[in-house]
Design a protein around this nucleic acid. Structure first.
Lengths: 225, 225
DNA sequence: TTTAAATGATAGTATTACTATCTCGTTAAA
DNA sequence: TTTAACGAGATAGTAATACTATCATTTAAA
């Protein structure tokens, strides 16, 4: 049986839905490759168009600008990750085991998911680590937020916060702890590989140590009294 | 008695030392104001030059490009903050009290320091919250890091890690916890004000709650067992 | 088969991110 | 006292970026 996975995206993120056309899917596919390769600052619609073999104007029919495209692919990632979380924690009763699963999903590399042909989740994960925060670290966050552009991130945060509360209903900071887990899963990975002295894993560069650190951090916070 | 504070900066950060000339100081002063006002993306040397009343070419004599200028002002901030930490924790014996002081310095607003006339530390603190990570989230982090451009950040992280070890010499992740404190002090503040549902402080928008969250997080981690 | 939607091709503009050069006024060493 | 070095102002120019607009052509749905 072949299953195809579609993440439903907020309509305000694009001008024309990239999931629905060949060119649209190529835009997503190639922008992931290009941003992964050159970083978001050096990424332009001109380069993307050349890479695909279309024209700049063609890309602008799908996305208003490159920042919207970045929000789109990060939103896609958070949507996909929430699916992974729900799928992988299904039937697990112990909330602590669930939470460990979540940390592992956030902090370790991802295998390319065959259910989504035009998206390479492994590259996407790397992009989120290095470029993810640029999606919201802008002067227009609040307006973007009003348009619900960050809903997938916030939904994921809420799901994790709920698991935290299952572990300890009296814990006072479930949402802040959830966003801390998400951000630190990525930042500690980035630091480990690029600014190693900001972490304790510079020598081995082992993702599993980030997992151990986060588990230690999270469970000592929510378990005490 | 009047004391003037000078932060010694890495020579590779600039082409000409901005601390040593009038124009240089104006560049720092006005770039802080402009980045605060418009955000880093919309900040250009042209606008800066107009704001100061000089020419674009004049700015380029001091800084290679706007990204280097961002690294400069963030590096300046971390240098200044380390001075604040050392100054404010001097004579405190109890490492836990020290650590609380550090969290407070990181997570709460800053009063403009009269010892540095051309730098408004309060605005700078806001800039670090919203733009700070852009200094290192680039494809050329590693090269920049080899030139020691991030030393002040790493030094501060090391100072905090040492205080953590004073609290509990057997704690396994002092550096990662230190960078987590630094980053989360800023991100939780940003989230609280711009994406409130990612935190538990959206209603009150009270910095002191970020402090409480961080204290709870940190001390439950290092104190357990 | 018609017709609308999607794409391709081309052109053009304002702004950004620089580089280069020449002048002029200060200052500080010869 | 001269002179040269330095900081700064003024002007010019270029390649790339971030778009917008228009028109022709192909493709796919009604």
């Amino acid at each position: 049986m072949e299953v195809q996975l579609q993440i439903k995206m907020n309509e305000k993120l694009f001008l024309r839905n990239p999931e629905q056309t060949e060119l649209g899917k190529k835009i997503i596919q190639h922008s992931i490759q290009l941003i992964y390769k050159n970083g978001f600052e050096l990424f332009t619609f001109k380069k993307l168009a050349e890479d695909i073999g279309t024209t700049e104007a063609g890309i602008y029919r799908y996305f208003e600008n490159k920042h919207r495209l970045l929000i789109y692919i990060t939103a896609w990632y958070w949507g996909w990750l929430q699916y992974q979380v729900v799928f992988n924690t299904n039937n697990i009763k112990d909330p602590a085991v669930k939470l460990k699963k979540v940390i592992q999903l956030l902090a370790t590399s991802v295998i390319d998911d065959d259910k989504t042909l035009h998206v390479n989740e492994n590259l996407l994960h790397q992009i989120i680590i290095a470029e993810g925060s640029k999606a919201y670290l802008t002067k227009h966050v609040s307006e973007d937020n009003k348009e619900q552009l960050f809903k997938p991130y916030k939904d994921l945060c809420a799901v994790i916060a709920d698991i935290i509360l299952e572990c300890n209903p009296r814990y006072k900071y479930p949402r802040s702890l959830a966003s801390t887990i998400i951000e630190m899963a990525h930042f500690q990975n980035f630091f480990m590989n690029n600014l190693p002295s900001l972490t304790d894993f510079g020598k081995t560069k082992d993702e599993l140590k980030v997992v151990s650190f986060l588990e230690d951090l999270v469970f000592s916070s929510i378990r005490k009294k």
